[in-house]
Design a protein around this nucleic acid. Sequence first.
DNA 1: AACATGAGCAACCGCCGGCCT
DNA 2: TAGGCCGGCGGTTGCTCATGT
Length: 311
Amino acid sequence: MGRAPCCDKASVKKGPWSPEEDATLKSYIEQNGTGGNWIALPQKIGLRRCGKSCRLRWLNYLRPNIRHGGFSDEEDRIILSLYISIGSRWSIIAAQLPGRTDNDIKNYWNTRLKKKLFGKQSRKDQRQHQFARQATNSGHKEEASEGAAGNNGFAAGAYNWHQHAMAMPSRPMPGSMVEGNRIGEGVDESIRKLLFKLGGSSFAALQAPPCLPPPMYGEAPNFVAPSVHTAPLNEGGIHCSGVLPALELDESFQFNQVKLDGLECFFGMGDQSMRWNEVSHLVCPNTTVASSSQGMQQYCLAEEPVDLGMQ
DNA sequence: AACATGAGCAACCGCCGGCCT
DNA sequence: TAGGCCGGCGGTTGCTCATGT
């Protein structure tokens, strides 16, 4: 027995909403609420729309205090942190970002943030990067770097996340290791509770990937020297070269069995030629340690891409 | 200038789970 | 307890516009 359709698809209008439809829906809901029944609502107000479509339109665009575009770096970090923790549960992620909708975040992730992470440049970024190179070659280094980072602070590829992080406010990123070597201890309380609920006890025990900052005791008020270094530090002073042991990553990122679309490289599948340095340092939680420290030197950058040796 | 391509985003689709009868 | 209804959610599609050739 088939499932009854939520509306008569033959008689409902589809496609973009007109300003008149928006006004009708908005004014009705503002005065009367949804009435607890989205399916019946469009008939009540004379809209030839599916109830689900009305709900989506209201939730994503018409309800008050909705923000579109202009994602801040702080929001980027929250999205990334939660994505790594719980996967593509956009509604939960959206709940942590006031004014953002799950649809918006989902689109933002799929079209932009994922590319930032994996170093695929948008054409806009490519232009900025090209401008940066040209300006650098012609001796305008300072303007060049500003131009390259002009797109909300990002220019994929050559961008140094750690310098960027240092310019960020000192609020700890959810999932960061500010107060030790366990992800979760520096997390905003609400997010921490959420993650704990979703991830169970395994979240509390989750060890951060061994991408550790150099010793900097006493510099940051809340920083506790990492107690465990599971990866040998590079003697040349590059403390996080971008090489992360696959096993550690497996353990870290698969703790709650969430499939992390687009992060297949972490599991040794997908594009086997993926290099860690092609992945943004956003995936290195210690970026946040930098963001919460004043005057900290760059510590997590290798000059050249380092092969993962996972092939 | 015209066409091709790609990015961004709004909206739709269909599945799932909770609630109600 | 089973079945239907509905809301919620994530994945996907398709349109529009910007950019490249």
